[in-house]
């Protein structure tokens, strides 16, 4: 079984790769996505693409639609119109498509959503055993390796409530990685953590990015975006206002609204 978290140097995930983006076929395409919650038009004609190995960070004010858009990528939210294609699979009401997409797309939530009645090890091995029919022994072995990579070997037989927030989120990341997804979605992974724990989670995410994982991260952590992102996407009122590499975005944003937003963030 190949190592899920590959720590070797990778050419993907650096700005140079982006330049040849036009020749590569996107892993994920979203075309003209619209969504309403009742009368509220929360996603307005959003179109974008994500490439293999890319780290895209989505930022914006609360209520701008960024989490909703992210959740559409694994059908936790449905889009009213438009087309989403992930690795060749069109995301629509067809359950087979949805399940196929969810096997390739992992998600990490703001509130961790660990299974409280299972130990850390069981949390990580549940999905591989049920979905991929891996044997318990093999799944345990793979899980131990993953948990070691995120620094939690000592806590393998503990229950989620016995762990700190940062540890729980790292378990959640390991749990998603256990399914060997092609893309990892992060929905404000550190928003529920206090500053001491944020670093340990961000470090895991940075390692993951450096190993070449395709990541789409909704976050308020600008430092992470500056350091690791290949592309920063700014959401405002349901639309993408600007998409640019971090140097451009943070150094020389064109849009007034973005400059105002950035100006409000301490450092």
């Amino acid at each position: 079984m190949e190592e899920p978290l590959n720590m070797t140097e990778s050419t993907v995930g650096n700005p140079a790769a982006l330049k040849s983006g036009a020749e590569r076929t996107p892993l994920i395409t979203a075309e003209n996505i619209n969504k309403h919650f009742g009368t509220a038009h929360v996603i307005k004609n959003v179109s974008t693409s994500f490439y293999q190995g890319e780290v895209a960070v989505i930022i914006g004010a609360s209520g701008s639609g960024k989490s909703t858009f992210l959740r559409m990528l694994n059908r936790l939210e449905t889009h009213d119109s438009g087309r989403i294609v992930i690795d060749g699979i069109e995301l629509n009401a067809d359950l087979k498509h949805i399940d196929a997409v969810r096997r390739e797309v992992g998600m990490v939530f703001q509130s961790f959503n660990l299974f409280p009645h299972l130990t850390v090890l069981d949390n990580v091995t549940l999905a591989p055993r049920r979905v991929r029919k891996t044997t318990r022994a093999a799944a345990n072995e793979a899980a131990q390796a993953l948990l070691a990579k995120v620094g939690l070997s000592a806590h393998v037989h503990k229950y989620p409530h016995q762990l700190s927030g940062g540890q729980q989120q790292r378990v959640a990341i390991a749990r998603s990685l256990a399914m060997q997804p092609k893309v990892m979605l992060f929905d404000e992974p550190t928003s529920a953590l206090d500053p001491e724990m944020i670093k340990e989670v961000l470090d895991v995410m940075k390692d993951l990015a450096r190993s070449g994982m395709t990541m789409i991260v909704v976050t308020h952590e600008m430092g992470f975006a500056r350091e690791v992102a290949d592309r920063v996407i700014f959401f405002e009122s349901g639309q993408i206002l600007e998409e640019a590499p971090p140097e451009t975005f943070f150094g020389n944003a064109q849009n007034e609204r973005i400059r105002a937003f950035l100006g409000q963030i301490a450092n």
């Binding site: 936790l76 399940d99 969810r102 998600m107 999905a127 959640a172």
Partner: peptide, 9 residues
């Protein structure tokens, strides 16, 4: 949401 995202039926 977490369970379905992991691919569980």
């Amino acid at each position: 949401e977490a369970a379905r995202s992991l691919g569980l039926s």
